[in-house]
Every structure is written in C-alpha cells, then in structure tokens.
C-alpha cells in the first residue's frame, strides 16, 4: 500500500516541479505549495505508514501499542505543514507585490536587480575583475 503513496508523491513532485518552472508567477507559487505537500508526505513515508491506529496511548496502558503509527514523523510533519503554510503565505504576498510593482506576471521579466537583457551587450561591459582593477 506504500506503493500508492509513493506513486502519488512522485506524481505530485512532477506536477510541482513543472508548476515551479512556469514563468507565470502564480503558477510558480502553487508549485511551491504542491512540492511542500509532497515533501511532507515523503517525511511521512519515513515512518512506514500502514497502521490505522493513531499514536495515542490508550487508557490504562503506559506505552504506545506496538501496532500504532509511528509518532515521530507525524510530529515532524505537523510543524512542517504549518511552517510551509507560513512560507506559502509570505510567497503569495511577495509575488503579488512584485507583480504589482513590475506590472507583469511573467517571472522572466522580474530583473530589477539583475543584469539587463541582452547577453551579448553584457559581455562588452567590464567584468567584476576589470572594474576592480
């Protein structure tokens, strides 16, 4: 049954990467979200999921039942979900602000702090070394 999980994760990774590579800024952010979900599931598979029993100690018992799900990846993933969400929110706001400011939703056009377009014209400009000397 892990096979289902692994297949789904792989599909999500492919989809996430493809979205991430998109030049449309909103797609990119959504790619981040999909990749985040996939990454959480990857960590989760580390606990060899398969049990339906939650990692909760039953009344009258001192320790977790041996057939319960592994609690450690769950603890890791829980916080990862929330942090990933915070990152996603920030990225969304950032993307919206940049798209507004640059008046464009094409990622390739966001180059305020990058060397300007024409690569050929660039090579004529002095390199860092030449500027220093």
């Amino acid at each position: 049954m892990s096979l289902i999980l692994i297949t789904v994760i792989s599909i999500c990774v492919s989809s996430g990467i493809l979205l991430l590579l998109s030049r449309e800024v909103f797609k990119m952010i959504m790619g981040l979200a999909v990749l985040g979900t996939a990454a959480n599931l990857v960590v989760f598979t580390g606990g060899r999921p398969g049990s339906l029993v939650p990692a909760v100690i039953e009344q009258g018992s001192q320790t977790l039942m041996t057939n319960a799900a592994s609690p450690l990846p769950q603890a890791l993933v829980l916080t990862a979900i929330v942090i990933g969400f915070a990152l996603l929110c920030f990225a969304l706001i950032l993307a919206a602000a940049v798209a507004n400011q640059q008046d464009n939703s094409d990622v390739a056009s966001y180059r305020e702090n990058e060397p300007s377009g024409n690569a050929k014209a660039q090579s004529d400009k002095p390199s860092v070394m030449e500027i220093e000397s």
């Binding site: 999921p49 799900a69 769950q74 993933v77 829980l78």
Partner: peptide, 9 residues
Amino acid sequence: AGAPDLAFT
C-alpha cells in the same frame, strides 16, 4: 494512516 493530528492540521 493513523495520523489524525496531521489530517486535522
């Protein structure tokens, strides 16, 4: 998968 906390989150 025995992870209700994760599911709710």
